[in-house]
Design a protein around this nucleic acid. Structure first.
Length: 242
DNA sequence: GCGGCGG
């Protein structure tokens, strides 16, 4: 993801954490974090293995909803399966597959079987053949995983905030240097609509206000009003009032 | 207490 703050600032892209759920499935822990940034709302799924090995996956809310529905279907198939039978298994070990596409992301869902048992492999790529991130959910935990997703979707909605609002792309972030301060203007969007964030960055601290789109013209008018008032009252001999 | 067949 493109950084919001250029100019070598080491600030992370502003991101809000809305909720976290932790699932313990066999030897693994899964963290489901609902987050939002200026591009919208999403769920970060992190798998932590017993060795501490971590892998993560990002899902737009709409993809999380789609996954939730697939999980229902996958768990029904899993429930209908007989005992594992290595002799009667497809070469690739895949018992059922689904594909999800969201913008430039592809998610491959595979119910697989190996000597350890059955599991759902979810892998995500951005460009085909490019880097892949993946998690593996023990098949016994698919229902629990689905129920956790359902809870989060009910509480935080299924809308990414990307597909509505502005037609086309959002404007690029804008940077302005004033004396020793840096100001940034960026446009964001969430389920409540479009907003402009004005940030002041100084010594690696950021303060910001978030202005809903509906009020932009009032802000502009109020701003202009003050600029004009100050011009009217400015001492003409004082150049700094310009 | 795992562990998930690639380039």
């Amino acid at each position: 993801m493109k950084a919001t703050f250029a100019e070598g600032q080491l600030l992370p892209a502003p991101e809000q954490e809305l909720a976290t759920k932790v699932l313990h499935i066999q030897s693994k822990r899964f963290y489901l974090d609902v987050k939002q940034n200026k591009r919208g709302r999403f769920i970060k799924v992190a798998e932590v293995g017993p060795s501490g090995r971590k892998s993560r996956l990002l899902l737009a809310m709409s993809s999380a909803l789609e996954l939730r529905d697939h999980l229902t279907a996958f768990s029904e198939i899993y429930a209908s399966l007989g005992p594992p039978n290595p002799d009667n298994l497809p070469e690739d070990g895949k018992l059922k597959s689904e594909l999800m596409v969201k913008e430039n992301r592809r998610y491959y869902l595979d119910l697989k079987e190996n000597s350890r048992g059955r599991f759902l492999r979810i892998s995500q790529t951005i460009t085909q053949g490019g880097p892949r991130s993946q998690i593996a959910i023990p098949a016994q935990g698919m229902i629990e995983f689905r129920d956790a997703l359902t809870d989060l979707l009910e509480e935080f909605g299924t809308d990414d905030g990307i597909t509505f609002g502005f037609k086309g792309n959002l404007p690029e972030a804008h940077h302005m240097r004033v004396e020793n301060k840096n100001f940034y203007f960026d446009i964001g969007q969430n389920s409540r609509g479009v907003y402009m964030r004005v940030s002041e960055v100084k010594n690696n601290f950021r303060t910001a206000i978030t202005i809903p789109e509906k009020s932009w013209s009032r802000f502009r008018d109020t701003f202009a009003e003050y600029v004009d008032k100050m011009k009217d009252t400015a001492d003409p001999s004082n150049e700094s009032g310009k």
